[in-house]
């Protein structure tokens, strides 16, 4: 279980000559991300989603408040893995798919067979892809590879920050279904700006606005009986092919 208590992150922003004011990227939030479910986080650009992801996964330590992993401030090496929106960050463009799978397996002491299985669970054929260089893959394929590498150590949690943004709809549908099927072994924190996609994937949803969690609840309640006006707006504006503008 991941618990955050009074988490705050602020920046100084320049508002004039020699004048600065505080900008709260995260404003005193407390909550719990449960195990064995998909925790969905949504909100518009600039709502604090990425800042939150960076802090939970340990990439950003400059904050006030507390993050507890199973009630401890320290987390085990393979407790949590982060998949960034931009696959270029976690992949080496001039190495092959095979190199990535081998390296990740060795680093984490897992046998290659099980890593290959994980790669193939993203619906890419290992024999077709093993000798391909990362820079020849499409954005969607890179994102699948980055995802595979994150789950190779069987972490307790994975955090996905718009990590499937380059997939076409059918592959996205497939990958989100895959998340649902692994959530009993790898708990998921899924971040996406579209509330409808988040609701498709998640069991529980957090709505972020201006650095605050303005509403959180199980998916059906959020979608059918949202309380906050902003949540209602997100639902109303979420693109849906059956609606017409």
């Amino acid at each position: 279980m991941i618990k955050i208590i009074n988490l705050t992150k602020k920046y100084k922003i320049k508002t004039g000559n020699f004048r600065y004011s505080d900008f709260y990227a995260l404003d005193n939030i407390s909550t719990i991300f449960k195990e064995n479910i998909i925790n969905g986080i949504t909100g518009s650009s600039g709502s604090g989603k990425t800042t939150l992801a960076n802090i939970i996964s340990g990439y950003d330590r400059d904050y006030s408040g507390e993050v507890l992993y199973d009630n401890s401030q320290e987390k085990k090496y393979d407790y949590i893995r982060y998949v960034f929106q931009d696959p270029y960050i976690s992949l080496n463009m001039v190495k092959t798919v095979e190199w990535h799978i081998m390296t990740a397996s060795e680093l984490n002491n897992v046998d290659i067979e099980s890593s290959i299985k994980k790669f193939e669970s993203t619906r890419l054929d290992y024999d077709d892809y093993r000798s391909k260089y990362v820079n020849t893959l499409s954005g969607g394929e890179m994102q699948k590879l980055a995802f595979t590498i994150a789950i190779i150590p069987d972490p307790k949690y994975i955090v996905l920050d718009e990590a499937f943004s380059m997939l076409d709809p059918i592959n996205l549908f497939y990958m989100l279904s895959l998340l649902k099927s692994i959530r009993k072994t790898i708990s998921v924190i899924y971040i996406d700006h579209d509330i409808n996609r988040v609701a498709f994937a998640s069991d529980y949803i957090y709505i972020l606005n201006k650095g605050r969690i303005i509403e959180e609840n199980d998916t059906d309640t959020i979608m059918n009986k949202p309380e906050n006006e902003y949540t209602k707006k997100l639902i109303e504006y979420s693109p849906d092919y059956k609606k017409r503008i």
Partner: peptide, 29 residues
């Protein structure tokens, strides 16, 4: 197109859209 798809690919992309309303739909590639 919303009423009727003549091509299986179009049918597939309009069926498997990751929306809340499709939450329990299973896709078998």
């Amino acid at each position: 197109l919303l009423k009727c798809r003549f091509h299986p690919y179009t049918d597939m992309i309009l069926k498997y859209v990751p929306l809340y309303s499709n939450k329990n739909l299973v896709y078998r590639p």
